[in-house]
Write a protein that binds this DNA or RNA. Structure first.
Lengths: 142, 142
DNA sequence: TTTACACCCTCTAGCTACTGTAGGTTCAAG
DNA sequence: CTTGAACCTACAGTAGCTAGAGGGTGTAAA
């Protein structure tokens, strides 16, 4: 049995984040000490590690909720978990394509900057004149 | 002179977003009709286009504020705008490196999925066992 | 002129995934 | 028994919008 601070350290999570996960129902309510402080065991540690790992892979909290649910029911089909992972992979690949295009345009801006006054700044010029933009940005915010 | 809806269409922005930009001081308060509706001209159109293009390149609203300020003062040095763009480029490159690693791990998860029951699901297994993780994810949320 | 209807207005709340703060309590060591 | 770190709840704030309620405006046709 350990405290929330210990669990935080073991998983590389902030204490508030753990309480937040509990609040939104991602982690179960743990036992408490006589004085009302949270006490955790290894099962909570495992569950939180799972959550953190999935977050690091970019899964949304909703996706993680689904994955946890699947993990709790070993008799269910694997197909759903697979679908979630594939969806995530697709998203990552799409983001990479977008970032690739952004990088190209930013490189162009930066490389062509003459270093004079802003009146002649290539960076600002490119931003001002959208027609020079080679890429299709349908979405915003990589 | 055109309405906010027209400006929205011309720039591919939502009406609410335009009002939001005005609220946070990114766009100046425009003139109004007798009845109190916003009326825009070409200068506002240019400014909003600039903002949108910069957003599409992933610049934060704060960075855009700086860029707009530089754009408004043609006598200032280009160096600052250049620095902002370089910072942005660096961020994009870092994100790409991270996404590359995530993609590899997700591909590994998905490719090794046998398609049986969740008890044997490779996806869940990988998430459960963090020690199999080859990459260093210091940050969360691509 | 009236009426219909799309569009506009302000204000407020909600979204994701946390993070930070205030003001107070508990725990373990010395 | 006292000290100080760590804990508690509750609420506010972050970025960058987005959605809704409840009402007013503008224009074109009947």
């Amino acid at each position: 049995m350990f405290t929330i601070g210990t669990l935080a350290k073991k998983t590389g999570t902030k204490v508030q984040t753990i309480r937040y996960y509990e609040q939104i129902g991602l982690l179960p309510e743990p036992g408490r000490s006589a004085g009302g402080q949270r006490r955790y065991g290894d099962s909570e540690l495992d569950r939180l590690s799972f959550v953190r790992h999935a977050r690091q892979l970019g899964f949304s909290l909703d996706a993680i909720r689904e994955l946890l649910d699947l993990s709790d029911h070993p008799e269910k089909s694997c197909a759903e978990a697979d679908a979630i992972a594939r969806r995530q992979l697709k998203q990552v690949e799409q983001r990479m394509v977008r970032l690739e295009a952004l990088r190209t345009e930013l490189q162009r801006m930066v490389h062509e900057c003459s270093g004079g006054h802003t009146a002649d700044c290539r960076v600002l010029e490119v931003l001002r004149d959208h027609s020079e933009c080679l890429t299709d940005h349908d979405e915003i915010g990589a």
